[in-house]
Amino acid sequence: MDLRFDLDPAVTPELADGIRTLWAEVSNAGGAVGYVPPVTPEDVRGDLLAHLASMSEGHARLIVGRDGQGRVRATAFLHLNTHRIHRHWLWASTVMVHPGLQGQGAGRALLTAVEEAARSMDGVEAVRLTCRGGNGLEDFYRACGYKEVGRVPSAIKVADDDYRDDVTMWRELA
């Protein structure tokens, strides 16, 4: 696994296509990134456009991990808080790694890039994210230094008979 991470890359049509393709591939492999399979790159267009709009307004930043061929293989959006009592932390969302790279350290490398980016931002002291329970993600984030600080039982409905907990994780940057 050899990924190069960039903070705030130029958003080109190729990058947007790469993110949409990654998002669909992660979703279709069972990844908990807001969708239930089957998913096409077109299905995620609206959510990606919302993230990009937030970036253009200065409320979000993007980390992209690319492989040696320049393909998008990992992403995380960093959402900055605008309320004065929450500016000391940011949200990490759409944290995803290509299914073919899972188990090879790419997720840890992505979280390291997230934390380095957060530390470079004035006043940011912590990262907050949520994950879907039932997939072992809490254990992964815990192993990366995050602690569980909240859980809403059955808040995520992935099928008529399949409800998952919405788990909030927190990482101090000190």
Rank of each mutant, 00 (worst) to 15 (best):
P13T: 04
T82P: 00
A60W: 00
D161K: 10
E116H: 13
A174D: 14
V149H: 10
V152E: 10
H51I: 03
A16I: 00
A143R: 15
A155K: 05
Q104V: 00
D6T: 12
G34T: 07
H86I: 00
T168H: 08
P13C: 08
M55K: 12
G34E: 09
K147R: 15
Y146R: 00
R108F: 03
S120E: 04
G34H: 11
W91D: 10
F5Y: 15
G150W: 13
D162A: 15
V149L: 10
L80E: 13
D165L: 07
T112E: 14
H86V: 01
P9I: 02
P13S: 10
L110Q: 05
W170E: 00
A10R: 11
E138G: 02
A76L: 10
V11C: 10
A50D: 12
M121T: 04
F77E: 05
G65W: 04
C144T: 04
S154N: 12
K157S: 13
L7Q: 03
A106Y: 03
L78V: 01
D160T: 09
L7E: 00
T75I: 04
V44R: 11
T21A: 15
E42S: 14
V36K: 06
R45G: 09
Q69E: 15
V167G: 06
G136H: 01
M55V: 14
E57T: 05
E115L: 02
R66M: 07
D6C: 02
V33C: 08
G103Y: 05
T82A: 12
V39E: 08
A155T: 03
L3H: 03
R61E: 14
G18Q: 03
A143T: 07
G100Q: 14
V114M: 07
A118L: 08
A174Y: 09
M96T: 06
G150F: 11
N28G: 13
R84Y: 07
N81I: 02
P13D: 13
D67Q: 05
A143E: 05
G70W: 03
L62Y: 01
S93I: 00
I156F: 04
L110Y: 01
A24S: 12
A24V: 04
D122N: 08
E14T: 13
N135G: 14
A60E: 14
S93E: 14
T12I: 05
L111I: 14
R151Y: 10
D139W: 08
E14L: 13
D122A: 14
A174P: 15
V127M: 08
R45E: 13
I85F: 10
A143P: 00
R132P: 00
E14H: 11
D166Y: 15
R20C: 15
I63L: 14
R128S: 12
C144R: 03
V167E: 03
L111G: 02
T12C: 08
A29I: 06
F5E: 09
L80Y: 07
R71T: 06
A92W: 04
D43W: 07
C144A: 15
A92F: 05
L3R: 00
D160Q: 10
V26I: 08
W170M: 08
T12E: 05
A16S: 15
M121I: 15
E115R: 01
N28V: 12
S56N: 11
E57N: 08
V64T: 09
S56C: 06
G150D: 05
E116S: 12
A32I: 07
R132I: 02
L111Y: 13
R45V: 09
G103W: 02
A174V: 06
P41F: 11
A24K: 11
P9L: 12
R45T: 15
H59T: 08
G65I: 02
N28F: 10
E115H: 11
